[in-house]
Design a protein around this nucleic acid. Structure first.
Lengths: 138, 138
DNA sequence: TCGAATATTATACAATGTATAGTAAGTTAC
DNA sequence: GTAACTTACTATACATTGTATAATATTCGA
């Protein structure tokens, strides 16, 4: 249950199901990364949204994606520091990434559809400045 | 576990967390609707995406939203057919809807950010024709 | 040496999507 | 008139995902 506004889903303090595609895209660009490094890289791209990428969720995604054959991994006990599990994208993983691109495009259109209806129904004063197109640098 | 591509999350056969804001928007526009009617109305707006709005999930949302004080309901045993539970949006529910608008705007920008990075990394042949702006009628 | 950063794992809970099934009342077609 | 369909809601169960907390272990800097 929810006691306060902060914890209500409407406050949107989450990745909105973008963790998995970000992982695939990051590994497509650079194979052999490990979980902790993937976290740092992804956070670099979304830091402006102040949405930390929860580390537990990230490792669980890596596990699940490997069980699905989308990723494969091997321990790296060379080098300094704690052992790392290095991940690579399989061919199935690339296919998965192509499908995510279409899925996210559809999700963006679904959000657009919601705002189309919101503009019909709600007073303009409550509608945020919606910038669904690529935002120019401010 | 996932056996086939159809059931992989990358295939995007879901509402992507839009059920709750659609319920609030629908009730803002017309108070006193019941679950089954809300389902029909929302599906009318998203039918082109062939994403059915799962009825079980919808009723659970209504329950949860009422427990949060976002909606309130009363049984209607008048009229014909089975008893209906009619819902109205509370003041807290309106606030919740305003916050959803901002949250969904941010989610759209997050997807845009993902595509910005995808365009840097992926061959153009795999990028869908992304139309994050309002789609003109075809 | 103490703490911070690196790197992974385990447990637990809530929110959400979905599948299946059941109850019950009204309507329509044969 | 009864069988099938539509309307309307409920219950149970499971997977995915986000998040919080905690534990383990290594390395590095002050």
């Amino acid at each position: 249950m929810i006691d306060d506004i902060e914890n209500c889903p409407c406050s949107g303090k989450n990745m909105s199901n973008l963790a998995a595609p970000w992982i695939l895209l990051t590994l497509f660009n650079r194979q052999g990364l490990h979980g902790y490094a993937i976290k740092k890289i992804i956070e670099g791209y979304i830091e402006e949204f102040s949405l930390g990428l929860n580390i537990t969720g990230l490792y669980r995604h890596l596990n699940l994606l490997e069980r699905r054959g989308v990723l494969c991994s091997q321990w790296d006990t060379q080098g300094r520091g704690p052992a790392r599990r290095r991940y690579t994208l399989t061919e199935a993983g690339q296919e998965c990434l192509w499908r995510w691109l279409n899925t996210l495009s559809t999700q963006a259109m679904l959000i657009g559809k919601f705002f189309d209806r919101a503009r019909e129904v709600l007073p303009a004063s409550h509608l945020p400045t919606i910038r669904l197109e690529k935002t120019p640098d401010t």
